[in-house]
Design a protein around this nucleic acid. Structure first.
Lengths: 340, 340
DNA sequence: ATTGGCACTCGGAACGGGTGAGTGCCAGGG
DNA sequence: CCCTGGCACTCACCCGTTCCGAGTGCCAAT
């Protein structure tokens, strides 16, 4: 089939361009791949592919390079996920196995991803919103100061120091602690806020004001999605491999990496760990990053996606390999969260 | 005095080179600075300065640029700390004022430093080793699992989940909690570990094993200086301004920024917030970073330096301005820690 | 000690011809 | 109808050459 060969040519172009970083010509193509036809034929195919917008020439009399559309077709139809090597599998398990707590898992995942893909890795901390309250602790710091510690099912710990309107004695503290925990332990953050709001009413005149302050701080801590927006970035040194002129490629990238909000938007919606999202070039929601691609997926215990992780790199990247790495790490991290 | 003018020439060279990024010649110098002598005289001075190793020419028939030794003399003798502008002062207060907790203070400081100096900023989290234990909390997560929360005077919170050898009921938990806190609250981490070690002995047969596990985890958490080695980096986008060939300048920098251990070594010993340490070019303890300088200082409540903060940038930087910014931020952060 | 003058150096921009990889098109053959 | 070999053409890139000017070092005069 003619059509089939054209796609084979496109695949070959993408593969060669990704590995050599140079426009690929018809002759080099037939040499490196067993296409079974002559360069002239390939040229005709290339002309057709160019008409359809899958490849382009940087300038007349140069080889072809894939367009965003070309890469898109490649990832959608022409590539299959590359299985990981044994060494890679082992790297994942050994590196993630020693994790101490949640933060450590996230930290190790970033390193791992960056190392495997040789790209810039981004891992979002697990969302608070779907997690439940495990325990709330009140610790007196002084006569009128108290430290609130909010422990969530994901293992995340939020803390707030509040200044109280009046003195808090140990008994009252114990009472508040007990009642607050009874009210919210085990419930989701969204429900918990509601339960808490009503709580102040229950208390007697003397301590009502104090409880109100504490409750307000807790609700604030719960609804504060700051930690939803926390991400960890790693492997920035891989930017050095971009090689490109860096005004157009490195600088906007570094700027984006400083802005967590931008990164979260890049990662996009959390999907199931099995579904890897790929955004290519202009599909990325930032003009300045139109020569980069994002490969991301969700992760979380079960198949519930609590957060996203992924990598950012030049459009010219090894998609099958990268997708495999991202998926594998997401799955493994999910498994760890499952157990923890 | 001839000697005086020579130094004035050196100062002028440093200033011009820092602002223009280009080798400065004798003619340009007399035009931009009121030296009161002719280019020829300046040339003689330059020749002398070059003999002494303070300046050098990138190639014959080019202007001069300062050597590391030249910058050294400049910061030691020829510059005075530039006072901050009103806008800068205001920026510091407004930005740092809204901080919620310790982590937030650190995060805001990095941003601030990066923004003020337009360099890459590094802030070390306050050391654990000198802080005292405020409170220890035990939270049951399941029948044989308990979450230990260690709250320190600096506001830092360390957590560990431990698996117990046997079931822990609420009374025993309360007992352990009370005794543990009595044993360590208020003491320094180093002493606290000692106090804890003896504690297990006090308990009866039935709970001794359990206590031992808990105590071991606590001691481990205390002596674990992981958080000593935690640093936050910001303003990496400023690397893009380095403009230089980036194989020699950006890449090693990015690599260093990924390695917290390296960064800590760069920042060096914590000094009093008033003393700003400047390491120039080869004085930096990493070969690959020999074209960068580090400006750092310590910070912490009182004049006790708990940790360090600073910036890294090209040797060709505005030392007076940078030193002023670093010092100001360190002082302000110290003040906040004092109050908190 | 300072200065103007002068010859000299040399990096970098500007120019230009040659080279070759790569293309498009076409006519002939399976 | 599709493939192929052949052919003329294009153009980025390499490389050698030239030219320019900023900047220098040295020297004789003040």
């Amino acid at each position: 089939m003619v059509e089939d060969r054209r796609l084979a040519v496109l695949r070959a172009i993408v593969e060669d361009y990704v590995s050599t970083q140079e426009p690929v010509g018809s002759k080099a193509l037939v040499e490196r791949h067993r296409l079974g036809v002559s360069p002239a034929t390939v040229r005709n195919d290339m002309a057709a592919l160019e008409d359809e917008g899958f490849i382009t020439q940087p300038h007349t009399s140069a080889g072809r390079i894939p367009t965003d559309k070309g890469y898109r077709l490649f990832v959608d139809k022409l590539s299959q996920v590359k299985p990981l090597t044994v060494a890679e599998r082992r790297a994942i398990t050994t590196l993630l196995e020693g994790a101490i707590d949640l933060d450590d898992v996230v930290a190790r995942s970033v390193r791992l991803l960056a190392q495997m893909t040789r790209q810039v890795a981004i891992v979002q901390y697990p969302t608070l919103s779907r997690s439940t309250v495990r325990h709330i602790e009140l610790v007196a710091l002084g006569e009128t100061r108290v430290l609130l510690v909010l422990i969530l099912s994901t293992g995340r710990v939020e803390q707030r120091v509040v200044e109280l309107p009046s003195r808090l004695d140990e008994e009252t503290a114990a009472d508040i602690r007990a009642r607050v925990n009874r009210a919210v332990a085990g419930s989701r953050l969204s429900e918990a806020s509601g339960n808490l709001a009503e709580l102040a009413e229950e208390f007697g005149e003397s301590s009502r004001g104090m409880v109100a302050v504490i409750v307000a701080a807790l609700i604030e801590a719960m609804s504060d999605h700051r930690s939803d927006e926390r991400v960890l970035v790693g492997g920035t040194a891989n930017l050095a491999r971009f090689g490109d002129s860096f005004e157009v490629s490195i600088k906007p990238m570094l700027e984006a990496l400083e802005e967590h909000v931008v990164l979260l938007k890049l990662l996009g919606e959390a999907t199931s760990p099995s579904l890897v999202t790929v955004r290519i070039g202009h599909e990325v929601p930032y003009e300045e990053l139109s020569s980069t691609s994002v490969v991301a997926t969700g992760y979380g215990p079960g198949d519930e996606a609590l957060a996203t992780l992924g990598i950012v790199g030049p459009t010219r990247m090894d998609y099958p390999g990268t997708m495999a790495a991202v998926r594998a790490v997401a799955r493994y991290v999910s498994k760890i969260l499952d157990e923890g």
